[in-house]
Write a protein that binds this DNA or RNA. Sequence first.
RNA 1: GCCGACGUAGCUCAGUUGGUUAGAGCACUAGAUUGUGGAUCUAGGGGUCCCCCGUUCAAGUCGGGGCGUCGGUA
Length: 378
Amino acid sequence: MSLSVNCTFTLEFTDGSARTGLIQSPRGEIRTPAFMPVGTAATVKAMLPENVRDTGADVILGNTYHLMLRPGAERVARLGGLHEFMNWRRPILTDSGGYQVMSLAQLRKLTEEGVKFKSHIDGSEHMLTPERSMEIQRLLGSDIVMAFDECTPHPAEEGVAAESMRLSMRWAQRSRDAFGDRPGYALFGIQQGNLYRDLREESSAALREIGFDGYALGGLAVGEGQEAMFDVLDYAPAMLPADKPRYLMGVGKPDDIVGAVQRGVDMFDCVLPTRSGRTAQAFTRRGVLNLKNARHQEDARPIDPDCACPTCRDYSRAYLHHVVRAKEMIAATLITWHNLHYYQELMQGLRDAVSTSALDTFVQSFHDMRAAGDLEPL
RNA sequence: GCCGACGUAGCUCAGUUGGUUAGAGCACUAGAUUGUGGAUCUAGGGGUCCCCCGUUCAAGUCGGGGCGUCGGUA
């Protein structure tokens, strides 16, 4: 087959501002709205790849920053690329490293050229630029590459936010140039502008001018709170091309995702289901359950009797509480498994609702279930 | 039996020449966590300072007696 295979997005249904669609890539389809589990260091922590797939994930997220430091992008490339290396054969989206440089690295020095920083692992010095970020993501074999940006810290005054956003837009152009033409692979640009509508508009115009295969909303869920984030999402997604996927980076809690889907977002990633799995928090349709809490110690019921995940099928809250307290590794696996299952079931519910024009009803029952709270105490 | 050391929070221990409401780490009870540091942070509960008597304005701290634990010894 000599035809080059492209990465395409097909919009299927809409319900208000909400959409469903399909991203088709050589490594598989991504149903949107999609939730991408985070697999930072070439692993979705505590999970086997086949089990991540079984929860319903079409795509996972990997990290430029972590993988460039350890084991190194060139080494991953020599070992056949990230998919082969970590045994996940489906699509992978990689973050560009811009966010992690700011949140993890020490001694950062930000210039027009890029960011110089010291590794949080061994203190070694590194430089990340749009060109190097594109090269690393190519070496990893990432299917969806993110432009190199600066995630504007919050709060930021308008002048600071504008300067930061314009730097990210110049880096977006350099990312586009460095990425080049790679059939079968996608490059996403990232809208910035903090909470300022005119800056979001300016950023969107710059990105549309450059042209990307998808567009992310960056600089949100960084401490501004849900109300402020929704205020931005009331207008920001519509500033981006309707025929390309829209990705809200780093979001979020289940109700954040529901609200963002209502406002026209197609893709999400978040550490919450996996990190919470390691800190004993289970997400359920009735809200969050903290399995560390002593009230679960003799509770023979599963996290959620109506959940079809392997954890809820076979394990009690009392057992999960015990393995959490005993710091046994299986606690992370079992709770993460449940959380990923819950998130993917939520996404499936949203997709079904949008495609049957029943999103309002779905959202209402989503909130009603949460308001009802956890199961009655035993 | 004798000699010595020790006895403070659930555990391991600090506690100044006697001086405000006796502390720490861990554990416990909760909370936070949004483009991942299995991390971290925040708050809270918990005391017959082995017991009794004494000295003193004032005792976890000094004295006497008792009880207990550990070690040594005949």
